[in-house]
Design a protein around this nucleic acid. Structure first.
Lengths: 339, 339
DNA sequence: ATGAAAGCGCTAACAT
DNA sequence: ATGTTAGCGCTTTCAT
């Protein structure tokens, strides 16, 4: 099977010199003569020598691997953030090892354990939607394992994090609806244990207040972030004696579910009901009508996450939470014909 | 930084026994007494001992890592296949290390080199759209490095592969269009170096022939698989003196580009022009009209890819190409009102 | 300027 | 039934 890799020993034997000389020559140690260095380097290239990271890792007690745990791999949001993390990791000579929790708390814990067993040097995690306890994160902190969280976060005073300006963005959505002439603005939120749910909810109410709208608890619904549960939530809203004329979904998948339910009820978007999402998945432009949504700069967010991770490795680092600016991209789904 | 991991040495010292006794006790070696085993195991659990994979890897010359190189991470197709690969890899005690080529041949080669440097035990690769040479794959074969390719493949006689029934599916699309009453059926293909382009093209012509349609070279266009280039290709088709009344895009991203161009030209889907895609991305259902497309069982495909990989590790294995059955999912975009 | 030896954590052949 | 030793590939201290 796998071709034998060339080792320092192989090179040393071939040149009839000691292993340490080869090692030093390859890293330009001042003690080694110019000719010797050239001879060794030439052969190393010829034989396609690459240092064995396992040996180095064992010796230096480092693996140069970062473990990433995300709720899923197939959502553009996570995939793009991972790309960003990876790009910075690579620059720093690190590998990203990725595991998916499949939105499941058990698998989240397992993934973390497995990555630790594999000796990653630290973790970057976005909580699953089921995660309603934080002891497994506390344990990481107390074991001094480098950890950065993003998007769905917890324990902000102890764990460095990168999140969106959720409350702000949320408030702006309500204000956008209001400016477009919508008045009964509903919100379909996610599981209450998630920080994004709490923060976006806060922003929603702030927006309602800022617009001088009479708050109506009935206009707030919950779902478990799936397409189907969003449809169900929307159907409940449509049953209301006084149904909404606008609805904001906590993310795009949810917004698509809302749209589906609205269309199935025979209502028109944006004239009967306006819709806005959050995250700006690729399909936002492809759906009809095109979905107004909040854009995360996902790739850059990934880069910031990785940078924060490396920063957290430096001695004396204090946990901090980075807030990333988002932008509301107005499209057709919230563009009511003014009457 | 990273908390010190517990080693066999630590356990041995604490119990005042030798390292080998600890090692043997932990793996239920028959020579070790029952009491000793229990004592050791108890402490191991207490101290949260996990074997150091670097030490094992160094010793056994294995890393239990598989390197995966895909054109991108953000397309659902790849993300889902990766999930499938990962699930089987995990069952076999392997980790998947993922790298993206970003559809770039240079990065593809770099990624392969980096993964090899990291001592992955083998590779699973889907070529970038730019990849028009195969020497870097030949080199892997000649170096005896386990390699499985999928979707966009090459050197089928030497490299095991998993692909869709591209030609068949393609022919069925044409026949589906024909059955629906479309007669001038166009095809927007991808880069000619890709196996999927060649195979789907073959199926297209077979379908044209099977339907008894007079072949028209003008109805075949090329693009580089991006949304934008697909739009451009569609616009060229629309300029034709005798434009198509149906168009099949080599994948869904392309199909979305086609749809965009058609809409911008003020034409109606499916009545003026029918559209069919390939791959069945999530957004197919969310776009309007819903896109008829060919479904790959992506997760299962990933599982098969991983299984083939492990099979390829067994001595005497001969390269084989697995062909995965796909299914045409009929939606609105190709459902012409019969007149 | 170069070599020898120890040690990172582990297993297995070889003692006892 | 348990201990000792060598070695996987590498760096580094200590010789020479």
């Amino acid at each position: 099977m796998g071709s034998r890799h060339i080792s320092l020993k192989d090179l040393a034997r071939e040149l009839n010199i000691s292993i340490s000389t080869v090692s030093r020559a390859l890293k330009d140690h001042p003690d080694i003569s110019r000719e010797m260095k050239e001879k060794v380097k030439k052969l190393a290239i010829e034989r396609n020598y690459t240092p064995n990271p396992l040996a180095m890792g064992l010796l230096k007690q480092e693996t140069r691997m970062i473990g990433i745990v995300v709720p899923d791999l197939v959502t553009h949001f996570y995939a793009s953030i991972i790309s960003g993390i990876e790009s910075v990791a690579k620059e720093n000579g690190y590998f990203a090892v990725i595991a998916s929790s499949n939105e499941n708390i058990i698998k989240e814990k397992e993934s973390i354990e497995n990555l630790l067993k594999a000796r990653v040097e630290g973790l970057i995690v976005c909580m699953s939607r089921e995660t309603n306890t934080t002891d497994h994160f506390e344990k990481l902190v107390s074991r001094d394992i480098p950890l950065v969280m993003f998007d769905r976060v917890c324990l902000g005073d102890k764990i460095p994090a990168v999140i969106a300006d959720n409350a702000d963005a949320s408030q702006k959505i309500v204000e956008h609806f209001y400016a477009k002439g919508y008045r009964r603005i509903a919100y379909v939120s996610g599981p209450e244990n998630l920080s994004i749910s709490k923060e976006r909810m806060k922003g929603y109410w702030a927006g309602i207040k800022a617009c001088g709208i009479t708050p109506d608890e009935n206009l707030v619904e919950n779902c478990d972030l799936t397409f189907e549960s969003a449809k169900t939530a929307m159907n409940r809203l449509l049953q209301l004696p006084n149904p909404p004329d606008a609805v904001y979904g906590i993310n795009d998948t949810v917004a698509f579910g809302l749209m589906k339910a609205i269309k199935e009820a025979g209502l028109k978007i944006p004239d009967d009901i306006g819709v806005v999402g959050f995250t700006d998945e690729f399909h936002s432009v492809v759906v009809t009508p095109a979905l107004t949504s909040v854009t995360h700069p996902t790739f850059e967010m990934g880069q910031q996450i990785a940078q924060l991770f490396f920063k957290s490795l430096t001695p004396g680092f204090q946990a901090e939470t980075l807030i990333v600016k988002t932008q509301l991209v107005e499209r057709e789904s919230s563009n009511k014909s003014q009457s």
